[in-house]
Design a protein around this nucleic acid. Structure first.
Lengths: 350, 350
DNA sequence: ATGAAAGCGCTAACAA
DNA sequence: TTGTTAGCGCTTTCAT
């Protein structure tokens, strides 16, 4: 039994050879017709296209990837999509990559331990590059994987300014915002607002986003002759934010201003303050968040928050990645964009 | 110049041949070592593993996929991740697929026109199957692609019960909930609650989820001697939900109960009612949503909603897909799960 | 248990 | 512009 017959039994997928036969041309002609900017006579092209259409031919991208050493697939490792901010980043990024003709292999899972599973598998699939979208990825974590010669770009996080965990600078691209500066402006806002006792609700302690925001806030307060009066950790999520808020609001000297390292925790603070402590936000208590997710602007919360320019960050990150992929000599760089403090009712005194 | 030399210039990736050389065995031995349940002496295996480790070898999954006609990649097409419900579904599904050793190629974009881009590209990458996670995918849309012999499973949507747009049943798997039944129970709840004028806020008109929810609600009202007094379309999103809410609440005979086809619109209804019409929810107006996203339970809203068992739905869908992939003779099936009406403050009269 | 050899479906370099 | 000829890196019979 010939091999063609054998495979035919299980309804073999149609290949370029089949198309070539039907069109009465060589397999190369088929390949060329389907390749941008190859030279084919319009006559041949027409024949090929007709045959392909008739046979329902779809070229095999896996094989193409194998041949030109470029899979056309980009990996994205994300933290939990429970965070609308991360979800938005993922959506925008995958949209952009689609526009660039790239496919997106995702891996979601927050723990750093997940990386140890995600990365090898990304490598087996020969992704052309890999993004990390997370509000918590230590430079260390990413750096561990730079020996693999695929470009890595971290979005939303960065290396802690002026502090290098590794002594050397780490060859991973990063796009983030001016967390320190804007957090100082949050301090200004609250001081100008006449607040007296200042608290910070921290995200995941190791996250650079968290550390920078805290530092900027604290420095900003000190610059105005105040100090950070209280701190609780909310781990960037609503549930832990509720617990942290309870602790902060149960204190003897209750804070009258809380800066939260992200919006999820800020919503928690508002909910707890109102429903459990019967406090009036903003009159008894000012709350500021970070990220400016959609819900922040809903009337039920009307939360003052720091807006990260997600769209721009994603585009900058994608540009960087494309450069890195196209030219391996390119050095990854760390990029900081400006964020914007959006004032809403949660800090507006009656 | 030999070809080996030529490619070596651009730092060629290490291949199985390299490992075989270093280990002093044949390439087949390497392949077998890395394949479950192939026969290799532990001696050889050890040598191979050591060499692979030393060289930093990662087998090429693209080539494997090409050879055994199974890429190990599954596609997921999702609607906007702006909807937390879809985002949760995506996260759970990709997690489950990871556990099964499958990779996830995603394509997000809501319009049906996107499908025409997404599907061909999924096919080129030879996905083993494809999921659709969307609160709006007409059976027609999916059916168009069944000629491609890859298994398709739609989650959250289904074919309209008793109505076949195609005359024949469509060979696409589907996992959804008992939208009609539960919506009738929503009607019961509101009637029992003493409400008088009933409105429905519709999602995307063509979506079967939307049509089933409306039908169940309407039938439920009629069964209780009432009727649907008003209807506005909110397209499943917050912004359009606000507009729809304004229209409903500006009517002469203002409804005192609104059933919204999803939570995003229900939040909009609550926000508009309170902030623009100065109404008390639930005393002046009862609101019911659908999906039971996290925010629904936040004190600021405390929304009565219909909980879809996302985790179970995803697992059932994944099971179905795995069966379909492993045994091409399997017929896709349509599965309905039971949803749960969760009562909260938005319908609880003082 | 192991190696040799024949592909998987496609692209690219080379002649013609 | 076209067809021919080598591969890309791996898996898998088939002998041994």
């Amino acid at each position: 039994m010939s091999k063609r017959q054998k495979t035919a039994i299980r309804s073999r997928r149609v290949t370029a050879v089949d198309v070539a036969h039907l069109a009465g041309v060589s397999r190369s002609a088929v390949s060329r017709t389907l390749t941008e900017g190859a030279s084919v006579s319009s006559e041949t092209r027409r024949k090929v296209l007709r045959a392909a259409e008739k046979l329902g031919y779809h070229r095999n991208a896996l094989v193409r990837g194998m041949i030109n050493q470029r899979s056309g697939i980009v990996g994205i490792v994300t933290g939990s999509l429970d965070n609308p901010f991360i979800a938005e980043g993922l959506e925008r990024l995958s949209l952009r990559l689609q526009q660039e003709g790239l496919k997106t292999l995702i891996y979601s899972g927050d723990a750093e331990s997940d990386l140890q599973v995600a990365l090898p598998s990304m490598i087996e699939y020969r992704v052309d590059g890999c993004f990390f979208l997370s509000n918590d990825l230590s430079p260390n974590a990413a750096a561990k994987y730079t020996k693999l010669d695929i470009p890595l770009v971290v979005v939303f996080n960065s290396n802690m300014r002026g502090i290098s965990d590794h002594g050397a600078d780490i060859p991973v691209g990063a796009v983030s915002v001016d967390n320190v500066e804007v957090s100082a402006r949050v301090a200004d806002l609250l001081v100008d607002n006449g607040r007296q006792r200042f608290a910070y609700m921290a995200g995941l302690p190791r996250a650079t986003t968290n550390r920078e925001r805290r530092r900027g806030f604290e420095e900003g307060l000190i610059a105005r002759g105040r100090k950070l009066d209280a701190l609780q950790v909310g781990n960037f999520n609503y549930e832990d934010g509720c617990i942290a808020a309870r602790k902060l609001l149960s204190q003897d000297e209750r804070p009258d201003a809380i800066y939260c390292a992200n919006d999820a925790m800020a919503l928690a603070a508002i909910d707890v303050a109102r429903s459990e402590f019967d406090l009036d936000v903003p009159n008894d208590l000012a709350i500021v968040g970070f990220d400016d997710i959609n819900i922040a602007s809903y009337p039920a919360y009307d939360l003052t928050s720091v807006r990260q320019p997600v769209e721009e960050m994603i585009n900058v990150a994608a540009d960087l990645m494309l450069r890195l992929i196209r030219d391996p000599a390119q050095r990854p760089m760390e990029i900081r964009l400006k964020s914007e403090l959006v004032q809403r009712a949660s800090t507006r005194r009656a």
